[in-house]
Design a protein around this nucleic acid. Structure first.
Lengths: 343, 343
DNA sequence: TGCTGGGTTTGGAACGATCCAGACCAGCAC
DNA sequence: GTGCTGGTCTGGATCGTTCCAAACCCAGCA
């Protein structure tokens, strides 16, 4: 009995179609695709020809059902924050998709709200829609991490488990302290003596980490940090106000900021006062967002190696989903400094 | 025979588990999930209880296999372009994911390169990994659209089929001409008489569309466009050069640009010459990127209703994937103007 | 009482792949 | 010739769901 061609334009060929054309069993075709070295050379090439002739690709749903895997990785994206410069997800997501593809995975997006960080995860997990998750917003005190760990769901975090350092899950992060140290050293090398810091509120572990690099750099040269630091919300307005206050009270000649958003706030203040960024006052941001790249005269910024982060994340995922699962230690990558006109 | 609890932490419950607990057949549980109105009220509630008790969610792979659908929508993302302000994808992607979820779909990302715009589509289609695509870069002369149409693959385009206006596929787009007309009128209302245009090269249909709004606005007030337009690459450097030339040769008091990237180029020129944006010279961009929102003193920009675009795209998808498939006409949405400091 | 018909419920088959155990078939040693 | 081995290949069972046709149940009516 031959397959009846359906009315649909092209009913995709199945394993059985290929098998019939090549004159072998279904299983042999399956092996040709998944374990080619099990076949005799001539059989393999015959099957390959049939595959090519029919344009066969294994049906994902059937394969997923049988192997109890979806070859999908879930990534929750947050609403784009208006009025900030935090577009680094774009770069990271692209790299993640790219690395995942090379490892045979696709990335599935879902959304969540800040109120219920767990929304979405549960559903995807129970319906076996994804094999694993990549979680990115560990700064929220990552309830997801704890929850996923408890559910024994495989996941990799972009961001250290700040709250529970010996948490067993794999993670990849960028060394923020070294980043701001790079930035501060760069300014000190240029001859600046009074380098101010504008960072996030004290309850942000990432913020405190980045801040520590700034103070480390100053102290290494015997300079004081007193009165030169400000901790605010991550908004342009906050950066603007904080820099205005610092300029009045501490007379810094340069600013290092915990984000490009804050750095843009500084540029606002400079514009308000007719000060020229890079000439009168230097500014360094953090994240190397598109904003940093295009704003006049170019915002010097700490650049995160997001491509490498994605590669390491996928590597950790492969370990996690491998047989047997293996979990390596956390990976800490080093950022670089993109020097532009403001410094 | 009861299911042997596996060693895996939580083998997800199946339809059969629920059926056994509720004392009904598998099919009845299936109906409870998919066609609740077929069941008698008391049966339904009994099944519901069992579902809740076990925390049952239908296995996606099995459902996909049987229904020949994946409930996934493919979206190809391009590498983030460094040095431009084109981050509008962030906003669009988020809205798309959100709208899709409400319609019961998830978004699957894949990458492609500019050389081979079709790479990726074929594979996903043949392996029935996605039900449909959303294509976004119709400005490339959309070979994907033609190819997908020929393969009879369902897809919706964000962007008009410029090259083949009576192409039968559904599309959603934003009226660029109206956008730049809004921008130009805004400047004319402010008293500007010489409003220059910096747009893309003539072979860009989108660029010409946006440009037409500018010239329409000028002509409506009896103003000449001669010598006031420049067409260049979409880079900051090009915008910078073009604005410098225009300032020297045509003495405009305001610029309307086809993108925020170009507008940032204008801001560079103004900074070079010590001119204050918004006071000495006005500038309006296009896309309302994050850059526009945070750059001092705030870049006035044409804002695309991306949330609404996403909603309409998903609506069109639902029609396409419905039984029977229905395809509505193209949808053209109207942008708005986000007024900030530069105008 | 028996038949009809609509509302409910059911069991078997199917979707298309992979797992598993066994069959087949040289080649080789005894 | 028999038995064993290892490399190839095969057929049946299975993953968890939905489709399909048929069975069931009970009220209504002749």
């Amino acid at each position: 009995m031959s397959r009846i061609p359906a009315r649909v334009p092209t009913a995709p060929p199945t394993l059985a179609d290929v098998a019939e054309l090549a004159g072998v069993s279904r299983q042999t075709v399956s092996n040709a695709v998944n374990n080619p070295d099990l076949l005799r050379a001539d059989t393999l090439s015959r099957v390959q020809e049939a595959i090519d002739a029919l344009g066969y690709s294994p049906n994902r749903a059937a394969r997923n059902l049988r192997t109890r895997a979806s070859h999908l990785i879930g990534l929750r994206i947050n609403p784009a924050q208006e009025g900030t410069a935090n577009a680094l997800m774009d770069r990271f997501v692209h790299s993640l998709v790219e690395s995942s593809r090379e490892a045979g995975y696709h990335v599935l997006l879902f959304t969540g709200d800040h109120e219920d960080p767990l929304a979405g995860y549960d559903d995807l997990l129970r319906s076996t829609a994804v094999d694993a998750f990549v979680i990115t917003d560990t700064y929220l005190g990552n309830p997801q991490a704890a929850w996923l760990e408890q559910r024994r769901a495989p996941f990799v975090a972009f961001g250290r488990p700040w709250e529970s350092p010996d948490s067993p899950h794999p993670w990849v992060d960028v060394d923020g302290a070294t980043g701001s140290e790079l930035a501060t050293d760069h300014l000190l090398d240029k001859g600046h003596q009074r380098v101010a810091w504008i960072g996030w509120r004290k309850d942000s572990r990432i913020g405190e980490d980045r801040r520590s690099g700034w103070s480390r750099a100053l102290k290494a040269r015997g300079l004081s940090t007193t009165g030169l630091a400000s901790r605010v919300e991550d908004t342009v307005a906050s950066g603007r106000e904080a820099s205005a206050v610092l300029l009045d009270e501490a007379q810094p000649s340069a600013f290092v900021c915990a984000s490009d958003t804050l750095a843009m706030g500084v540029l606002h203040t400079l514009a308000d006062r007719g000060l020229r960024p890079g000439q009168d006052i230097s500014v360094v941001g953090f994240d190397d967002s598109q904003v940093a790249q295009v704003v006049p005269p170019g915002l010097t910024s700490v650049r995160l190696p997001l491509e490498e982060v994605a590669i390491q994340v996928v590597k950790a995922l492969e370990g996690l989903l491998g047989h047997p699962p293996t979990v390596g230690p956390g990976v800490l990558l080093t950022p670089s400094l993109a020097v532009r006109g403001t410094s």
